[in-house]
Amino acid sequence: MRAEAVRAGPATAIERRPASRTSTLYLFALPATLLFVVFVAYPILWVAGQSLYIRSGSGVSSFAGLANYVTVLGDPTFWIVVRNMLLWGVITIPVQMLIGGLLAYFIERHTHALRGFFRTMFFLPVVTSVSVISLVWVQIYAPYYGIAQEYLKHVGFVMMTSPIGDPKMAIYALILVNIWQWTGFSMLMYIAGIANLPSEVLDAARVDGARGWRLAVYVIVPMLAPATKSLLLLGVIGTLQTFPIVHLMTGGGPNRASEVFGTFIFKQSFVLGDTGSGAALSVIVLVVALVLSLLQIVTLGARLTPAGKERA
């Protein structure tokens, strides 16, 4: 009983110490806090402030209220971006989960000697520099000398132009590259989930007679829910920060058809030098990201850990 009482006491031994010594303990938390304040919190506040100002040609800023937001929301490109981002998220996230999940399932449950080999090979696109990947895919998609049009025409799929040069096709062509690059990540998350499934529960399912697809649907998929939730959360944030693939492959073109938030902000802020609307856009992306994340955390109990597992 006494032992219980001691254990239940406030955070046990280490916490209770004189105030003077406690204060030095805050040194543990100081560096992280400093980095956060200077390089995350301050820039966010600054950009929120700037979004309310307009800089004239002569470099003088004047308060403009929500004028920047009105301008941005009135820009037809903004709505192309919104559409593209929706497509991006709605296609990328489930497809990556599906392919990554299937790969993980077969690799983890049906291979032994080659398990490490498959895990590594499918993950390689994640560690290949995105700028290299983008240029390789430009070459793959290229008309005349690219291999996509050359090989796809044998299966009855004739491409007259490069898909990234076609306003209707461009965004899908980019999404394909993105899926290819990041599926290995989904796979690894599910591999962690599957490897950590309690083996006795799987035995119990076998005793209950669940095999094959029914084992997968009724037992394995629900038990991988934590990994799925983390992937959803990471997928939404990843979608909103899409930049290099689009910037390097189409530059948001042709005719802004494949513009995403990243390239749009980049153009407004650094090409056109319009920090006011660049700031307004940044704030919009930030708010969208926070709202979507919090929504998932509250409704789904999603966690941002790589293979977060619910506490039993």
């Binding site: 303990l25 938390a29 956060f36 966010i44 950009v47 802020s269």
Partner: peptide, 27 residues
Amino acid sequence: LRLKGSLFLYTTLLTTLMVPLASMVLP
């Protein structure tokens, strides 16, 4: 150590994970 206020700080720092880099490059 479970310092007082560390949980609040932790939660605050966590929001960084939800911030897309795209909205941070300009500032």
